[in-house]
């Protein structure tokens, strides 16, 4: 009896000691030396894993931050859109570097082809997927550039920041937007753009992406940019460019003077969150359906601290309009 017990204790104990010794050496041999700062940086990141920075997740971004911080001793080109300047400042202090403050961005829907402005000419039935409808036909209103209203952007958003307005049939961005860019990717028609939030959330942009000539554009939508060029002429800062019958306001050059807004014959230029002047007549833009949030004006924008936006936001390269796939096999 005793012998059995002693044997059992001895053998199990022996195995335990042997295993611990092996484990100790294995742990020594295969030890991965990791920069403790990576953990520290990751801690300070929002842990949203949205991919808005361009990396697979917050961990990957933290590694990239530490690596670039070591290699180049700067953090240029790396930005966490979710956390914004606060987080980047914390990261910089962990890596004992300086970081330039970035102007925070927000997603902007550049289409105002609501049910009222671009009445339905046909009715779509089928998969609720913009990507599919984009390849099927030009759109219920007839505009082959405008919003399809099936909500791929809404589905792509992890932050509950973009929703369809059932009245207009257009998506609306609210102040939860962190500019991760998921909706920009999701939109098959490249309607959504990341633009600087602007001082006090004030923004001016062309709410149209139609590249057709004025006639056909206006035929399908009352508020289309017709490429008349009036805004280009009136802009004192050369911020507006005209390409393919479409005006584009460069958010960096634009000083928010609002001269272009009343000039636009189709009310395609929108201004947001500007106070309503008391003396003047009611400006055009106020009567327009707001496709952007109006709530956020109440909140202090972090952009107020910024005097001038310093770095250009990465402008989306113009993707050529994708040809619909017509590769159906012959069946008749």
């Amino acid at each position: 009896m005793n012998d059995v017990m002693i044997f059992a204790i001895a053998s199990l104990g022996g195995i335990g000691i042997a295993a611990s010794v092996i484990l100790y050496f294995v742990a020594q041999k295969f030890k991965v030396v990791e920069d403790p700062r990576i953990d520290e940086v990751e801690e300070s990141l929002p842990a949203a894993n949205c991919g808005g920075c361009g990396y697979a997740g917050c961990r990957a971004f933290a590694e990239a931050l530490v690596k670039q911080g070591d290699d180049k001793s700067n953090l240029d080109g790396l930005n966490c859109p979710v956390g914004g300047n606060d987080v980047m400042a914390t990261v910089a202090s962990i890596l004992s570097l300086e970081v330039e403050e970035q102007d925070p961005l927000i997603a902007v829907v550049r289409c105002n082809g609501s049910h009222a402005n671009s009445p339905k000419k046909v009715m779509y039935e089928g998969a609720t997927s913009c990507a599919f409808a984009h390849n099927l036909f030009s759109g219920e209103g007839g505009c082959s550039f405008g919003c399809l209203g099936l909500g791929d952007c809404v589905k792509s958003c992890d932050f509950d920041a973009i929703h369809m307005n059932s009245e207009t049939g257009l998506p609306e961005v609210n102040d939860k937007c962190v500019a991760c860019g998921a909706c920009v990717e999701a939109c098959p028609r490249d309607i959504i753009e990341l633009r600087p939030k602007g001082k006090k959330d004030r923004r001016i942009f062309v709410s149209c992406v139609n590249k057709e000539k004025g006639g056909p554009a206006k035929k399908n939508c009352d508020v289309a940019c017709i490429g008349c060029g009036k805004c280009v002429k009136v802009c004192p800062f050369d911020a507006i460019t005209m390409e393919n019958n479409l005006a584009y306001i460069d958010p960096i050059k634009c000083r928010l003077c609002r001269k272009c807004v009343p000039e636009c014959p189709t009310e395609a230029i929108h201004e947001l969150n500007f106070p309503i002047p008391k003396v003047k007549k009611e400006p055009v833009a106020v009567s327009q359906p707001k496709v952007q949030d109006v709530k956020s004006i109440k909140e202090e924008s972090p952009a107020e601290a910024v005097k001038e936006p310093k770095s250009a936001p990465a402008e989306k390269p113009e993707k050529p309009q994708e040809k619909p796939e017509d590769k159906t096999n012959e069946t008749n």
Binding site: G126, A127, S129, F132
Partner: peptide, 15 residues
């Protein structure tokens, strides 16, 4: 179910 709608979309993306 709109099976072919989605399959077309898939063909397009995969292509």
């Amino acid at each position: 179910r709109p099976l072919l709608d989605y399959i077309r979309l898939g063909k397009n993306k995969v292509g």
